[in-house]
Structure formats: structure tokens, C-alpha cells
Computed example of a mutant assay.
Amino acid sequence: MDSFASFFDSQSASRSRWSYDSLKNLRQISPVVQNHLKQVYLLLCCTLVTSAIGAYLHILFNIGGFLTTLGSIGCIIWMLSTPQYEEQKRVSLLMAAAAFQGASVGPLIELAIDFDPSILFSAFVGCAVAFGCFSAAAMVARRREYLYLGGLLSSGISILLWLQFATSLFGGSMALFKFELYFGLLVFVGYVVVDTQDIIEKAHFGDLDYVKHALTLFTDFVAIFVRILIIMLKNASEKEEKKKKRRN
């Protein structure tokens, strides 16, 4: 409870400090770190485009599934075990992992397109806006201000894993499924803030591995996008069912 209380106290303090001067907090980020962040976000954009290509390939050839998930995990492990000086190889492995990940999410994207293509567009825009806003909030905040939330978020991930394990064994209700969706969305939005500040802090201490940092943010982005898309699809299907019942 003390952690949650300190979190809300810090939020109120941050709001009271918010002004034009708070935007100048970016000055505490050195030019080297700023250049590193540019590389990270540029590579993140490339991974998102590659992931979209992977999803498109699934729509064309129906390749997404368990094997593409394994392929994505394999490429990530290979990339993380590759030395940093082999930069081109690591970037190529990240692109391959993104393509496999896009193909794995492809069935969900295909379902959204078949149901209503506007839902897919709205989910992506919503995810991009949320990701951008929380990343910007982490940048303009004081250094290390939100890093302590990492422990709470790790506990949240553990809760989600145990819930999924229990659901696989004993089955689950619709209420539990909704809780997992919304709680998971909250957790990964929090990870955007924590991971952004963690990347900045590591860069200040000389860790300029932009490939690994782009992978971290890519994972957060996909996790948020998938949950937003599922939530929007579910809400749209429920509205459609209600309309059919009214007509009958």
C-alpha cells in the first residue's frame, strides 16, 4: 500500500510541477543519449513496418501460427547472444523476429479486417498515441522517477501468468478474461514508462545497445496493440449481437 500511496503522491507532485519549464527536462538528457534515443525509435519504426509485412504475408499465405512464434523467439535469443559489434547481423535478426511476430499476430489482424477494417486502424492509432504519450511522459519526468514501478509491474506479470495457468487447468469465465485483458493492458502501458526511463538511464551509463532497446519497446508496443485490438473487437461484437437481438 505504501508503494501505491507514494506512486499517487508522485503523480500529484508531477502535475503540480507541470509547466513549460517541465519540457526543458529534456536538457538533462545528454546529446549522446538523445542521439541514442533517435536510433532506438527509428529502429522501432522499422521493426513495426517489418511486423506489418509479416502480418500481410500471413493474410496472403496463411503462415502465422505456432512455428512463427517459435521462429520469433529463436531469432530474439540468437540476436541477444550475438556480440554487439556484429551490428548488421543483430539488426537483421531483429527484423526477422519482427516479421515472425507479425505473422503470429496475423490471424487476429485478419479477423479484425474481416469483421471491420476500421477497428484495426483505430486500434493501431490508439496504441501509437498511448505509446507516444507515455514515452514522452517518461522522457520529461525526472530521471529514475518511475523506475521503482518495475517491481510492481513484475508482480503484475506474475499475476497474469498464474491466471493464465489457472485458466488452462480449470477453465475461466468471461469476467476473468476481461480482467486479464484490461489488467494486462495497464501493466504493459506501465512498462512503456519504466522501460523508456530504464533505456535512458542505461544510456547515461554507457549502454548504447540500440538494437536491444528497440526490441524492448517493440515488445511493449505489440503487447499493448494486441490487447487494444482484442478489446475493441470484443466490444464491437457485443454491440453487433445486441443489435441483432433488438431486430429479432
Rank of each mutant, 00 (worst) to 15 (best):
E240Q: 10
S168F: 09
K239N: 11
L169A: 06
G74P: 01
E240K: 13
S12Y: 11
Y146K: 08
S168W: 08
C46H: 06
M95N: 04
S237C: 07
L48Q: 07
N35T: 14
D207K: 11
F124C: 05
A52T: 14
S16F: 06
A236F: 05
S237A: 11
L26P: 12
A55W: 00
I199M: 07
L26D: 04
E238F: 04
S158D: 10
R143D: 11
R143Q: 11
A175S: 12
D116N: 15
R27S: 11
P83G: 00
I77T: 11
Y191S: 04
I199Y: 02
D114T: 09
V189D: 03
L147A: 04
Q11S: 09
D220C: 04
S154E: 07
L186I: 15
L80C: 04
D116H: 10
S16G: 04
L215K: 10
V125E: 14
F8Q: 12
V32R: 15
I159N: 07
I159T: 10
F8R: 14
T68H: 00
C133V: 15
V105A: 04
G184L: 02
D198G: 10
V226P: 01
T216F: 04
F170E: 07
I119A: 00
S81V: 09
S155Y: 09
L152S: 13
H36L: 05
G171N: 09
R27E: 14
T50L: 08
P83F: 01
R17S: 08
G74C: 00
K245D: 13
A141H: 07
Q84N: 10
V129D: 02
W18T: 07
K178T: 10
T50C: 07
A97S: 14
Q101W: 02
L169G: 02
I231T: 13
S6I: 11
A175R: 09
R15D: 06
L176D: 06
M174Q: 14
L108C: 01
A214T: 15
T219W: 01
S19C: 03
F124N: 02
L120E: 05
G190E: 05
A214I: 13
G184H: 02
G151S: 14
G54R: 09
P107S: 08
Y182L: 15
I224G: 00
I230C: 01
V187W: 02
H36W: 06
G102H: 01
V129R: 08
K178V: 10
A98Q: 03
Y85L: 03
P31M: 00
A175H: 10
A136C: 10
F134S: 04
F177S: 08
R90P: 06
I76M: 04
E87C: 03
I157G: 04
S118M: 11
F7I: 05
K178D: 15
V125L: 15
S158N: 10
V140G: 01
A175V: 12
G132V: 06
S122C: 07
V49I: 15
G102S: 03
E241L: 14
R227D: 05
G190M: 05
L26S: 11
I76C: 00
R227T: 12
I230A: 00
K212V: 00
S135A: 12
A98N: 01
V91K: 12
I113V: 14
S135P: 05
A141K: 08
V189A: 06
H204D: 15
V211C: 02
F100G: 01
L111C: 05
A175M: 09
